[in-house]
Amino acid sequence: MHEFGIAEAILAAVEKRADGRRVRRARVHAGALLRVTEPVINQAFSAVADGSVAEGARVDLVIVPVRMTCRSCGSTSTSVDPFAVCAGCGGTDIDTEGGDDLVLESIQMAEAAHVPGNSRGDRGDPVRPS
């Protein structure tokens, strides 16, 4: 099952971003061509995350559409169905673009920790001259 490989990749990214802190949730963008569903990826993630900082965490999956261009009629469209046919002519001779990305968008920690400074990217209070 390819879902376990995807779940392991998600776990590696989650662990790196969590930096040892417990994780409750992860939001992941997955391209339509990866052919994963949220229930199946959560089952695989649960298995690979056992004993890690993400044990018991849930994956919220956002499917990113694939862009399709029909070689027969030139029509372009997007679809979350990896087996879609041309919306214009019904043809199957299509080129695809994108749809194979896997991106960890965000994680939610189990416990919020106060970080001084601007939460939008600041690493803490600036050094103030004495």
Rank of each mutant, 00 (worst) to 15 (best):
A49I: 01
Q108W: 13
R123Y: 12
P116Q: 15
P116G: 15
H114M: 14
I41V: 07
A113E: 14
E55H: 04
V64W: 05
G51Q: 02
V40I: 13
P82K: 03
E111I: 15
A7Q: 02
V28S: 00
I94T: 04
V40K: 04
N118C: 11
G90L: 03
P116V: 12
R27E: 14
R21S: 08
A30N: 02
E3W: 03
R67S: 10
I41W: 00
A26I: 05
Q108F: 11
S77T: 10
C70R: 01
T37L: 04
T78Y: 02
V115C: 07
V66M: 09
G74E: 05
V115N: 08
C89Y: 03
V80T: 13
A54I: 04
L34S: 04
V14T: 04
F45Y: 02
G91P: 01
D19Y: 06
R35M: 15
P39M: 07
V53R: 03
S72V: 12
L33D: 09
A26M: 05
A112H: 13
A113F: 10
M109E: 15
L104D: 06
N118L: 12
A47H: 09
V36D: 02
A87V: 12
Q43R: 15
D122T: 11
S106R: 11
I107W: 01
G91T: 01
T78A: 08
R24S: 11
L11V: 05
L34R: 01
P126M: 12
A57W: 00
A9R: 06
A9Y: 08
R71P: 00
I94C: 07
V66G: 02
V36Q: 00
E38V: 02
V62A: 15
R24G: 03
R71T: 05
R71Y: 02
R22C: 08
G117Q: 08
D50V: 08
P65R: 01
A18N: 02
G51E: 06
D93E: 09
L33W: 04
A18Q: 06
R67Q: 09
K16C: 06
A9H: 10
R123G: 11
E55F: 01
I63K: 00
S75E: 15
V62R: 05
G5D: 14
E15Q: 13
G88T: 05
G74V: 06
A110T: 10
A87W: 06
G124C: 06
I94R: 00
H114Y: 14
G98D: 10
A87E: 14
G51N: 09
D93K: 04
L104F: 09
A84K: 03
R67T: 12
R21G: 05
S79A: 07
G31V: 04
L34K: 04
D101R: 15
R22K: 12
H2L: 07
S52D: 08
I63P: 00
R71A: 07
D100E: 14
I41F: 00
P129L: 14
A47E: 10
V48D: 03
Q108P: 05
A54L: 04
V40P: 03
A18Y: 03
Q43A: 15
R67F: 07
D100L: 13
R71E: 09
H114G: 12
G74W: 06
T76P: 01
N42D: 07
G91S: 04
D81E: 09
P39T: 09
R24E: 13
R123S: 14
V66A: 09
V62H: 07
A54T: 00
P126F: 07
E97D: 12
D101M: 15
A49Q: 01
E38S: 05
R128A: 12
A87N: 07
A84E: 08
R21Q: 10
